[in-house]
């Protein structure tokens, strides 16, 4: 009985709500400060970093970001274009190739399937940071260094995505595909017309994860390119704030550009929130 009363006690509720609100402030506060700072002047940002209201409010950094300023412009347009090109291509390729391979591993019997499965599984164990030099090496060897193809192809297949799709395909009842096969449909037809439409939630999940991953990718693009022409939002921003363009203390413009680079993924996140949260949650349960 004591326990039941305790669960209903209002003081416990106040404590839980209090803790949650404090943490929500801690988790969202930095973004609020980021937005406010992007409308500040450099000295105001440095001297009053905590003020939520800019004084004086200025659009100067936004003008620089969009190239409407006499000050040295930020090559934001180039970065944005490159990020869009690269992230879109990587996402499309990943969704297509991962689902193809995932389908084969889930449904088709072919000699060597176990070996292929183990090899793909094995690549999952390789930490990403170990791959920086190897990928640079192969881009050099294939003459793909400093090119879009070089930025896209090496990360267009991911083992995790193959296993994600395999899991989704395995949930389809076998009978549905059997029926199609008896009607004389080949593997490609069965995959494209029957199986693929049935794993739409899987495709959406993989699309979001791939887009978010490639949009936020930094270290690989850093070693795959050196020409500023190929800078993405991540490599461009990092080099910019690193002082090569003399942005040492220009926090309003840096934080404004960082904010803009976050927005596409944030929009995607809010639209597909349910799907993202669910996939993240189920990855925990499966593990």
């Amino acid at each position: 009985m004591a326990a039941v009363r305790e669960r209903r006690s209002p003081s416990r509720r106040v404590l839980v709500y209090g803790a949650l609100i404090v943490f929500a402030l801690l988790f969202l506060g930095p973004f609020v400060i980021q937005i406010a700072t992007s409308f500040k002047t450099d000295p105001d940002a440095t001297n009053h970093p905590l003020n939520i209201v800019p004084h004086p409010a200025t659009l100067e950094s936004w003008k620089r970001i969009f190239g409407y300023s006499s000050d040295q412009p930020v090559p934001f347009g180039t970065w944005l274009r490159n990020s869009i090109i690269v992230a879109t291509c990587i996402t499309l390729l990943r969704v297509f190739l991962d689902s193809l391979a995932g389908y084969a591993l889930a449904r088709l019997r072919f000699p060597g399937r176990r070996g292929v499965f183990m090899l793909i599984l094995g690549t999952l164990a390789v930490p990403n940071v170990v791959l920086l030099i190897p990928r640079f090496l192969v881009l050099k060897e294939l003459n793909l260094y400093n090119s879009y193809a070089g930025m896209i192809l090496p990360i267009s297949i991911d083992a995790a995505g193959i296993f994600l799709m395999r899991g989704f395909f395995m949930q389809i009842p076998l009978a549905i595909e059997e029926a199609a096969r008896i009607d004389g449909a080949g593997a490609l037809r069965t995959y494209w017309d029957i199986a693929l439409p049935l794993v739409k939630p899987g495709l959406v999940t993989l699309t979001i994860l791939s887009f978010q991953g490639s949009w936020n990718e930094f270290s690989f693009f850093l070693v795959a390119t050196s020409d500023p022409k190929y800078d993405t939002l991540t490599t461009g921003l990092a080099k910019f704030s690193g002082g090569s363009l003399g942005a040492g203390n220009q926090f309003p413009v840096t934080l404004g550009a960082a904010l803009l680079s976050t927005i596409p993924v944030a929009i995607l996140f809010f639209i597909f929130q349910r799907q993202i949260v669910r996939s993240q949650m189920s990855s925990g349960v499966k593990g």
Partner: peptide
């Protein structure tokens, strides 16, 4: 979900 670069700058 935000980029490590953007958030590190903040």
């Amino acid at each position: 979900i935000t980029s490590s670069i953007a958030i590190t700058l903040v």
